[in-house]
């Protein structure tokens, strides 16, 4: 994840959070890793939510395939107080949690716009990744390749994790 794009994603989540009058907006990758969360997250177990969201998308994706659909791109869960709106943005998942201060219509409208913007940002990230992978001869794309901080991990470092 690149710093610049990460900030853009965060800004878009903030914007959506505000415009959709949502409680929380967050972005998860399809493996269940939380990318960013915005809003009233203090009392929310975002890690578990991220993992269950990915499980949910995976399960409905499996159902879609059985019906000959590529994906179900929008899921909506309605509760007594809070509701969850989940939508697929390419390889990641956008989640909006909202209550009676907002409405499904408003959320859907704002999400649609955000999906477009997030798609563009994600596209840029993919391009950067591809460039970084390209051989160094190709226009010197590799010149800014930062040195990985993990190259010097030792077994001691790992042992320390387990005290």
């Amino acid at each position: 994840m690149y710093e610049e794009e990460f900030k853009q994603i965060d800004a878009e989540l903030h914007r959506l959070h505000q415009q959709a009058n949502a409680k929380v907006t967050f972005l998860v990758d399809k493996n269940g890793q939380l990318i960013s969360a915005v809003g009233e997250t203090e009392n929310l177990d975002t890690t578990s939510l991220a993992s269950l969201t990915a499980g949910n998308i995976a399960a409905t994706g499996g159902m879609a395939k059985l019906l000959g659909e590529k994906d179900f791109s929008i899921l909506f869960h309605e509760g007594e107080r809070d509701n969850i709106h989940i939508s697929l943005v390419g390889r990641v998942i956008l989640v909006v949690i909202f209550d009676q201060r907002s409405s499904l219509g408003l959320v859907r409208l704002r999400v649609k716009k955000s999906v477009e913007i997030l798609s563009q940002i994600l596209q840029k990230i993919l391009q950067k990744v591809d460039q970084a992978k390209a051989p160094s001869g190709a226009g010197g794309a590799a010149k800014e390749q930062p040195k990985s901080p993990f190259a010097e991990i030792t077994e001691d470092d790992i042992d320390k994790l387990f005290g």
Binding site: G55, P149, F150, D157, I158, L161, F162
Partner: peptide, 15 residues
């Protein structure tokens, strides 16, 4: 479906 347990064990190289 699954069990899920997130564990944060500590830091390596500041991560």
């Amino acid at each position: 479906f699954f069990d899920f347990l997130p564990l944060a064990l500590g830091n390596i190289k500041g991560f």
